[in-house]
Computed example of a mutant assay.
Amino acid sequence: MTTSSFQRMATLRLPVKSCFVLLVFITVAVLVIYYVSNTHLQLTKDWLSKVSNNIHSYYIKQPVRIVPPPPRHHQTVKQGTLNGTNVARTTTDSNVTEVLRKSTSSVPSIRYHEAYPRNYHFILDEPNICKQEKPFLVLMVPVAPHELEARKAIRSTWGNVSVVRGKTVRVLFSLGRPGIKDAEAQQRQLNLESKKYHDLIQSDFLDTYLNLTIKTMVIMDWLATRCPNATYAMKVDSDMFLNVENLMSMLLASNTPKENYMTGMVMWNRPVIRDPASKWYVPKKLYDKDYYPTYLLGMGYVFSNDLPKKLVEASKEIKPFNIEDAYIGACLDKLHIVPSNPPDASKFKAYFNGKYDRKEFQRVITTILSSPQQLIDFWQDSRRPT
């Protein structure tokens, strides 16, 4: 091969070599770009997922993070647990201060509160009252620690009725521990109130609207463990007008069941509210069905006193959520117990329509009022001789 031929061959090989190098370069570049893009995309996906989860967790946690249950055991509290003695007579201000200090300390945040009542312990209690008085009907009133006027109004009206149609009736107020603001002063007042009236049942969960499910389940456990021999009980809100005579007439009727019985204002096919801005918001993580089982409106429902123990047992298997009356409905559904329609549904009224009618208040069993003073005024008028 001549020199010129060799040079021509070299000249031809150069573009081929260059093309090969270029092809390798492009291939490597594409692979690098693909890898980087794919990694970036994955990071972006992970980042977006994290943001989404954080936003979702905010709405899941927001209603309940502010109400975590207190520590389950208070070593410094000697009042006893749910099976203890009458702590209302032994609680001191220093004990209460320690309870409040420990209960408001930092605890791990949770996604929902725990409603099973044995997770909590009594601060004030009346464990022997049902043994001493043997009530036929126990009226349990959930009330906030600071709502002294509501308790006074009830004590001076329907809560002052101890015997109706020959049957003993007892009223007790159920409450949690005060919030951080003025907690010690409020607790001292509650201690004095308990010693005077012997009608406060206080547990160590934080008393908030979102913890009404806990409060209700503590009520059920108190009835099951402290007052199992009562025939009937009622959970009735502190803003209610209650005509105990009419209630007793219904309970003493021959056809009123004494077991597996709960009645009041019945709610059917109620949708679960998913709007985070709503007071009644429940996220799917707490309750994943779109509709609640049949339940009774929480303003006031009556039940045979065999149910509290069964409801407490059922609550072990029902994830808690913050709508207390619907939660009781879920526990009933677990027990395959259907709430009963009252003999006359119109006697369980919701809100007062603003126009007082004496005859109507003498006819009903329950009505929601707007203030303690309104309860006193309507009660006194409805009871005066005609």
Rank of each mutant, 00 (worst) to 15 (best):
T3N: 12
S5D: 07
F6K: 15
M9I: 13
A10S: 11
A10F: 07
R13W: 04
P15E: 00
V21Q: 07
L23T: 14
L23Y: 04
I26L: 00
T27N: 09
V30M: 11
V30L: 07
V32G: 15
I33D: 01
Y34R: 13
S37G: 10
T39V: 12
H40D: 05
L41W: 06
T44Y: 09
K45M: 14
S49R: 05
H56V: 14
I60H: 12
Q62C: 14
V64C: 14
V64W: 06
R65L: 08
V67E: 05
P68N: 01
P69A: 14
H74Y: 12
T76I: 05
T81F: 06
T81G: 10
L82I: 06
N83D: 13
N83Q: 13
V87I: 07
V87R: 08
T91K: 06
T104W: 15
V107K: 10
I110R: 06
Y112N: 11
Y112P: 11
Y120C: 10
I123K: 02
I123Q: 02
I129G: 12
V141Q: 01
A144R: 14
L148S: 09
A150H: 11
A153M: 08
T157L: 05
N160V: 08
T168E: 03
L172I: 09
S174L: 08
G179R: 02
I180R: 15
K181Q: 13
K181W: 09
D182L: 09
A183M: 01
N191W: 05
N191F: 05
Q202M: 15
Q202V: 08
Q202K: 09
F205A: 04
L206K: 05
Y209P: 00
N211T: 10
N211K: 11
N211F: 10
T216N: 11
T216W: 06
T216D: 13
M217R: 00
V218T: 10
V218D: 10
I219Q: 09
W222M: 05
A224S: 13
T225H: 03
R226F: 09
T231W: 03
A233V: 02
D237A: 06
D239H: 04
D239E: 13
F241W: 06
P257L: 02
Y261D: 13
N269A: 14
Y281G: 00
V282G: 04
V282H: 03
K285R: 07
K285Q: 06
K285V: 03
L286S: 03
L286N: 07
D288V: 01
D288N: 00
K289E: 09
T294W: 03
L296N: 15
G300R: 01
V302W: 00
F303N: 07
D306F: 02
K310T: 08
E313D: 14
A314G: 07
E317W: 08
D325E: 08
D325C: 07
A326R: 01
A330I: 11
I337H: 04
S340D: 15
P342Y: 02
P342I: 00
P343Q: 13
A345W: 13
S346P: 10
K347A: 02
F348N: 10
E360W: 13
T367R: 14
L369C: 00
L369H: 00
P372Q: 14
L375I: 04
I376L: 04
D377Q: 01
F378G: 01
R383K: 11
R384S: 14
P385L: 14
T386D: 11
